[in-house]
Structure formats: structure tokens, C-alpha cells
Simulated assay, not measured.
Amino acid sequence: MKDDLSHFLHEHFNSLKLEPPLFYSSQYGIRFEIAIPWMEHEDNRNLRQIEKRSTGIFNQVFQAGDDMLLITDFHCKKNDQFLQKRPAKVYQKYIKNKKLRLSLQHKIIPNAFSEEEMVTHRFILPCKKNDIRYEALLAAISYEDFRHPTNILKGFPRNGIDIYFINTTRKMIYHLYDDRGCDVIASRKEDLLPLYHDFNEWILDYDREEIDGVFSR
């Protein structure tokens, strides 16, 4: 699976290294603001916006029949034998079909942030959109920096996690990096144009000039 992923990234994303921030590493990408920046996370207005924006973008990127990879990267110390298995809980909780979970792949790769004492445990599952309880998973990702029952790394705040949704059919990658924002990249500019037009008001102002320069022409 690692070779399949590497081949996919080489062929469609110029050998992109799958690590944040994807927006700044890709030729074609959009960075969206998800939460209301000045509001408490658990304010109902903020939670409604997070759900609306994260799932709205997700539903535009992924169609029911698309082939996907659900990838969970867990960054921990090399000797953390217990913690390295924890991201598998993502698949236990958010993948509906138990048999599908048997296809889960696990690889150890160099840490994405180049820390010598750290490694990244990468879990990869080929699936379809309807195999995932994606609304609940996106909500859990948005809560990861806050105390909440859904926390994937509950009790281990010093460790890091990144979850990527890759559309191998449409050659697009969705990364909700936390409650603040979401990157969507694609191998072709044309595939991002609907997102650019439909969710233009959600684009992060900090990067808007750069994004407009690519997609408004």
C-alpha cells in the first residue's frame, strides 16, 4: 500500500510529501476557514459552522462511487509501543464494515517534522465514502485540540495526529487539519473550480490573494 500511495502521489502530485500544510506544497489548492475565529469552540453557532463547512466541502470532494484512501498519521516517540496502535481506533469507531477493516495497512515512516526521536505510524484503508461515518469523524477532528469524549488521542496531548481523505478517482486530497481550517488540493485546477465558486466566502482571507490569482483567471 505504501508503494501504491507513493505511486499515486508521484503520478498525480509531483511526488508530494503527504504532510501539513498541503496548501503550501501543492500547485493547485484552496485553504478554507472552518471555525469562527473569535468565538469559543463549543459555542453552538461555532459548532454549526464547523459542521456545515467541513461536511459541505467534504461532500463536494467525494461522491458515493469514488475510490478513497483514509489515512491516519500518528506522530509519536520511537519506543511508544502502546501509543503507536492508537490511531487504529479511528477505523474501529468510524468504519462501518468490520470486514473492511481487515484491509487496514500499517507502515512506519520517518517523522513528518524531522524529529529524530519521533516516528510516524501511517495507517491506510482503501474504502468508499459510504463506508465512513465521516460526519462524526470530521467532528472528532475539529475537537482534537479540546477536552472532549471524541478525542482520538485522549490522554496523550503531546503526540500529534493527521487524518487525510484521498480521492483516488478524482485525484483530490482533503485535510481538515483542526477546527480552524481545511486544505483541499487537486492534481488539476479544473477539479477545484466548483469549490472555489461554491464556497468562495469560506476561503481563508490570509491566503485569498494567492488563491484568487490561480482560480479567478
Score class of each variant (00 low, 15 high):
200 N>M: 06
174 Y>M: 04
156 F>S: 13
32 F>G: 03
136 A>H: 09
79 N>G: 08
115 E>R: 12
97 N>H: 10
66 D>R: 04
69 L>Y: 12
37 P>V: 08
116 E>M: 10
171 K>Q: 15
182 C>A: 09
133 R>S: 09
141 I>S: 03
204 L>H: 03
186 A>S: 15
103 S>V: 03
213 G>N: 11
163 I>F: 00
136 A>C: 03
195 L>R: 03
103 S>D: 11
170 R>T: 10
3 D>E: 15
141 I>N: 03
157 P>V: 09
135 E>N: 07
175 H>D: 03
26 S>P: 06
138 L>D: 07
31 R>P: 01
186 A>D: 06
50 I>S: 04
51 E>F: 03
142 S>N: 06
88 A>P: 01
185 I>L: 06
140 A>N: 05
119 V>D: 01
37 P>Q: 10
109 I>M: 07
37 P>S: 11
65 G>W: 01
38 W>N: 12
134 Y>I: 04
85 K>R: 14
28 Y>Q: 04
103 S>A: 13
53 R>K: 08
205 D>P: 00
180 R>L: 02
108 I>G: 02
78 K>V: 08
83 L>D: 04
169 T>N: 07
6 S>T: 15
73 D>I: 04
180 R>N: 04
174 Y>K: 01
34 I>H: 00
44 N>M: 09
6 S>Y: 13
158 R>K: 14
172 M>F: 01
85 K>Y: 11
64 A>F: 05
70 L>N: 03
77 K>F: 12
200 N>T: 07
66 D>N: 14
68 M>F: 06
13 F>P: 00
54 S>G: 03
141 I>M: 09
49 Q>I: 04
13 F>S: 03
86 R>Q: 14
207 D>I: 00
84 Q>N: 12
148 H>C: 04
197 H>K: 15
113 F>K: 07
126 P>L: 04
154 K>M: 12
6 S>Q: 15
144 E>I: 02
4 D>H: 11
145 D>M: 08
88 A>K: 15
55 T>K: 09
52 K>N: 13
148 H>V: 05
128 K>N: 09
61 V>I: 14
35 A>W: 00
164 Y>W: 08
7 H>A: 10
195 L>Q: 02
18 L>Y: 09
107 K>C: 09
48 R>W: 05
203 I>G: 04
87 P>Q: 09
134 Y>V: 03
118 M>N: 13
75 H>E: 14
70 L>F: 08
182 C>V: 12
198 D>I: 10
135 E>T: 07
20 P>T: 02
150 T>E: 11
93 K>R: 15
134 Y>L: 00
160 G>I: 02
102 L>D: 14
87 P>Y: 06
72 T>A: 15
20 P>N: 12
24 Y>N: 11
154 K>V: 06
55 T>P: 02
47 L>R: 14
66 D>C: 07
84 Q>G: 05
52 K>P: 01
135 E>P: 01
99 K>R: 13
185 I>E: 02
154 K>Y: 11
208 R>A: 07
